[in-house]
Write a protein that binds this DNA or RNA. Structure first.
Length: 985
RNA sequence: GCCGGGGUGGCCGAGUGGCCAAAGGCGGCAGACUCAAGAUCUGCUCUCGCAGGAGUUCCCAGGUUCAAAUCCUGGCCCCGGCACCA
């Protein structure tokens, strides 16, 4: 298709008003959304997959006579737009290149330095992309989350949540930049310049008591190993801070002290040089053992509390540190003994390898990993990780300790016991340094008065469960997982402090509602938005009373607004709600979907609950990773920006690519070569469709019947697949199997004509949901309306004939059999070019029917004797009784593994006679004759004719160099250079 | 660790007990058409096979069954999630 034609059809759809959702009580409705995109930058090819699915479904339902509503919006809440505007301000090179790629004139850049304006600008750019992609979105309902009306809606929503008791305040830990405020630590590094991959590590602490009542507070991931503690480590030349918490005094490194202060409060007191403690010892909690304090370079004061519990039997680093210890220190520590055992028999090969040799486990693991000095940090880390993991999974405590329970249990038990004493708080830390955009180190801080949504509330959860049980969820794997996701769903912080975009939290405007929390219920606002956009409902009327009435049917509505208007709003809402389908990428599995479902479950009555969720995979780069913005660049980048993708392949190729290259649940790998292939495929189909739509004499009636039956079959399958959102199956049927059927028709000698044209028009119409531009282009001028506005083809308008399908299968089957025999023959240089086909005698039909009746699914065929007995009741079969036994024996063995399917009785003689010309041409034979098995005296030296079965004729091949057949002179290689014989009709 | 999903031919990817040696696409090879190229069409693309067949395959090892890619047991490996991320 000429590239410009897409724009032509898009404006034709716009002119016909196809995208405009019109409530029509005489029609069923279909209302689906795609989770609206955030505003972190320009869209790329990865973003369009969900939109493609949504549009395909909306188009399908529109063609089926439903009123459809496909709205969208832009999510401006949070930091993404802030960050984007910041990058514009700083003229970040990658961002500048994007602006240039998208043709944004430099004069407008200044405007984009404002976060809200930048976000709105990005939202508008998304709409342009959607139009160019051929989406039929009703833009009258377009929202951004910073629009005044949307914020009124959100305020109302939070009032309702509050009234339902869903909001609570509680202490919370959060990542915070001490200078810039709260930040989100995630791989997209929106807020960060470093450390997006950081995880939270939660350390247990172990308080080692000094004689004067102070505690040396060690941090550890494995509190259960305290039974094997031989000493405590601090860094050489360390100075320790005193952290006062409650009535207790703890000695920790200065950094550790600050961390505890941030997370747990208290205050910091005197600094203590380690020298003061050098010769003292401490008491291990629980065991009450006395152990020394020693120094080692293995300790980093900045990690944890800067104090380390040494367990040389189970921590490779401790073991190695011990080897480097001066004699006089070594003498102070108690003997090293294992406190955890692992059962040799349960180990895998690689685990056994880790624990090979003699010594305590840490010693073995260090040896196996090649770590002998503290300087071997990589090897030590490896040894540590493997041993920790192994002992956690397989380990049990030694029999004398805690009764030999498993390590996992022991860890929980020891942790609990320590905490119960009030002297062993947990301390959190990032797994790697995290640095904010402005270069400050991000820390974890306690927020005492964080607002939460109580998703964990048991009463609420019960409502979730009920709804989840009723939801239609695709794909199936996700449906299975969903109940578990709701079990895990727990209270979520729903507000933030800082310079985020968003709606101020109604109960306390010093907070801003957090991005996930303000996008849980918004589909309910879409049906109303049109009234606001048109001015029918002024902003001032968007009060709680208004929404109570419009969405919940409660109260009498907003007094300042005409009753009739409010009735209309309410009707509109009730027409479109419930939402039929919420479509989103798999990243929303645990983010958006659960809270979307939960909020609906809480706020709406059963009849208005959402009906379906649809989760799709990503578009990934060639490594299988989700596409990131960095990869998108017109030059050199592996993923082109959308404008260029549309220019190169056209929107239809992209849409087909998204639907056809993987099941919706799977990721599709972005591969330009595949896009090239897809767009070529569209060209192929175009040619085929044009041929099929041309004038001509038609084909033999039996062939047309077959084509129509195939069309019937395919249409049923397509409609069914649409209904279950199996878009890949749709694409396969429409873009692979349908053309295959048409090619077969042409190959079999069918000509374009009335029948083929009707089929081809139908076929092209089925393309309209997935490749709408192509469909319009091909049927341009042939339909009274646009294809997108015409009814979806109906299988019932094509007669279905099982006999016609069965007949074609007979031809297909004989082709396959002939090919099978010809292949080895040709390999040997033989080239038969004449064939006699023997059609099975009528009695075989009868007998084969009996065999099928008698075949038992659990195996074993019918009894030979019974069948022969039965045949005695049929005098007309008497003559064949001899052959019959042989035939039954041969056939009943193989019949079990044949399809039980169509027992359609075929008139093989008529079918093959009709296909004679085709077969002759196809195999470039000189002649093919079809005879009844029992008739005449055809040439059959190999006695093949006995093999004939109903639907599967026997044959004898001869000619070429194969044999000395009836006629003598013929070219030795009839395949070479021979023109196909002209088909007789 | 816990929860979930997986491992299929050169590649992508269908396929949940029987025409499955396994759809479809991509790639490759060959042929037809053509002065030629391209496009298009046709065939082939695990091994063997002068008669429609046989052998060995769907991560590995066992098992159930007349029959296993599909069910069961054990193992190995991979991916995702478990956070103030839309």
């Amino acid at each position: 298709m000429e590239r410009g034609r897409e724009a032509h059809w898009q404006s034709a759809w716009a002119q016909a008003g196809l995208a405009r959702a019109e409530a029509d009580p005489s029609k069923e409705k279909f209302f689906a959304i795609v989770a609206y995109p955030g505003s972190s930058g320009f869209l790329h090819v990865g973003h369009l997959r969900g939109f493609a699915y949504a549009d395909i479904l909306h188009r399908f339902h529109r063609m089926n006579g439903r009123a459809v509503f496909f709205p969208t919006g832009t999510h401006l809440t949070g930091l993404p737009a802030v960050t984007f505007s910041q990058k514009v301000k700083l003229r970040d090179p990658a961002t500048v290149r994007q602006l240039e790629d998208h043709g944004v004139p430099e004069s407008e850049w200044h405007d984009l330095e404002d976060p809200e304006r930048a976000g709105r600008f990005l939202g508008r750019s998304y709409l342009e992309v959607f139009r160019a992609f051929g989406l039929l979105i009703d833009e009258r309902a377009y929202i951004t989350t910073m629009d005044e009306d949307y914020r009124s809606f959100i305020r109302w929503q939070f009032h309702r949540l509050d009234r339902a008791g869903a909001l609570v305040q509680a202490p919370h830990f959060a990542s915070v930049c001490p200078v810039c405020g709260p930040v989100s630590v995630d791989p997209s590094e929106t807020d960060l310049s470093q450390g997006g991959g950081a995880e939270w590590i939660v350390y247990h602490t172990v308080p080692f008591r000094l004689d004067d009542g102070r505690f040396l507070l060690a941090a550890t991931l494995r509190p259960e190993t305290l039974f094997g503690a031989t000493n405590v480590w601090v860094a050489p030349h360390a100075t320790l801070s005193t952290w006062h918490h409650g009535t207790h005094r703890f000695l920790v490194s200065p950094e550790g002290g600050r961390r505890l202060l941030e997370q747990l409060g208290g205050h910091l007191g005197a600094e203590v040089p380690f020298e003061e403690l050098r010769s003292t010892s401490v008491t291990v909690p629980i065991t009450e053992r006395k152990i020394p304090i020693l120094t080692s370079p293995l300790v980093s004061p900045s990690i944890g509390t800067g104090v380390v519990m040494s367990v040389p039997a189970h921590a490779p680093a401790d073991w190695v540190a011990l080897q480097e210890l001066p004699e006089h220190d070594l003498n102070r520590i108690p003997p090293v003994e294992s406190v955890i055992r692992t059962d040799e028999a349960t180990l895998t090969a690689s685990e056994r390898e880790l624990l090979a040799g003699a010594g305590v486990p840490a010693e073995r693991a260090a040896r196996a990993s090649g770590a002998s000095r503290l300087a071997d940090t990589d090897a030590l880390d490896r040894a540590t990780e493997r041993l920790y993991r192994l002992e956690l999974i397989r380990g049990r405590m030694m029999p004398g300790i805690l009764g030999g329970i498993s390590v996992a249990e022991a860890r929980a038990k020891v942790g609990e016991r320590l905490e119960a004493e009030g002297t062993a708080p947990q301390v959190r830390e990032f797994s790697e340094p995290v640095v904010c955009r402005n270069g400050h180190t991000v820390v974890i801080e306690r927020v005492p008065d964080q607002w939460f949504l109580r998703y964990g509330d048991p009463v609420w959860k019960e409502k979730d469960r009920t709804l989840v049980g009723r939801l239609v969820v695709r794909p199936e794997e996700y449906r299975r997982e969903l109940p578990a996701i709701f079990e895990w769903l727990s209270d979520r912080p729903c507000t933030r402090r800082g310079r985020w975009l968003g709606t101020p939290f109604p109960k306390d405007e010093s907070w801003v509602i957090e991005p996930i929390a303000d996008s849980t219920f918004y589909p309910a606002y879409y049906p109303i938005r049109g009234f606001v956009a048109s001015g029918e409902v002024p902003l001032s009327a968007l009060t709680d009373a208004f929404f109570d009435h419009a969405i919940l049917g409660e109260g009498s509505g907003e007094p300042s607004l005409a009753h009739a208007t409010q009735q209309a709003v309410r009707q509109q809402f009730l027409y479109w709600y419930p939402l039929d389908l919420n479509i989103a990428g798999k990243e929303h599995k645990r983010v958006h979907f659960p809270v979307f479902v939960a909020t609906h479950a809480l706020l709406l009555p059963a009849a208005l609950q959402p009906r379906g969720l649809f989760l799709h995979g990503w578009v990934t780069n060639q490594g299988g990773a989700k596409i990131s913005k960095k990869e998108v660049a017109s030059k050199g980048g592996s993923v082109p920006p959308l404008r260029e993708a549309f220019r190169r392949w056209g929107p239809d190729a992209l849409r087909l690519f998204y639907s056809a290259s993987a099941t919706p649940s799977q990721d599709v790998e972005w591969d330009p070569a595949l896009l090239d292939a897809t767009s070529e495929r569209i060209e192929d189909l175009t040619r085929l469709a044009r041929t099929a739509l041309s004038e001509g004499g038609g084909g033999p009636p039996e062939l047309e019947r077959w084509l129509e039956s195939r069309t019937h079959e395919l249409l049923s399958r397509i409609v069914e697949a649409f209904g279950e959102c199996r878009m890949r199956d749709v694409a396969e049927a429409v873009y692979a199997e349908f053309p295959l059927a048409i090619r077969r028709y042409l190959l079999r000698g069918g000509q374009p004509g009335e029948s083929l044209v009707r089929v081809a028009e139908t076929w092209v119409a089925t393309m309209s949901p997935v490749t709408p531009h192509l469909a319009e282009e091909l049927l341009d001028g042939r339909l009274p309306t646009l294809v997108a506005a015409s009814p979806f083809p109906n299988a019932a308008s094509f007669p279905y004939s099982a006999a016609a399908l069965a007949a074609e299968e007979v031809v297909d089957r004989i082709e396959e059999d002939l090919r099978n025999v010809l292949k080895p023959a040709h390999a040997k240089g033989a080239a038969p070019d004449e064939a006699i086909l023997f059609v099975a005698a009528p009695w075989k039909h009868t007998v084969e029917g009996w065999i099928r009746e008698g075949a038992r699914p659990e195996g074993g065929g019918p009894n030979l004797r019974d069948l022969l007995e039965r045949s005695k009741l049929h005098p007309e079969l008497a003559a064949y009784r001899g052959e019959m036994a042989k035939y039954i024996a041969r056939v009943s063995a193989s019949i079990r593994s044949e399809p039980k399917g169509s027992s359609e009785r075929t008139d093989d003689l008529a079918i093959l006679t009709a296909a004679q010309g085709y077969l002759t041409r196809r195999f470039r034979f000189r002649s093919i004759s079809v005879v009844r098995e029992e008739e005449g005296k055809p040439f059959d030296p190999l006695a093949r004719r006995d093999r004939a079965r109903p639907g599967r004729p026997a044959f004898y091949l001869f000619g070429g160099v194969l044999g000395p057949p009836a006629s003598a002179a013929r070219p030795t290689d009839p395949l070479a250079g021979t023109k196909p014989s002209t088909p007789e009709s």
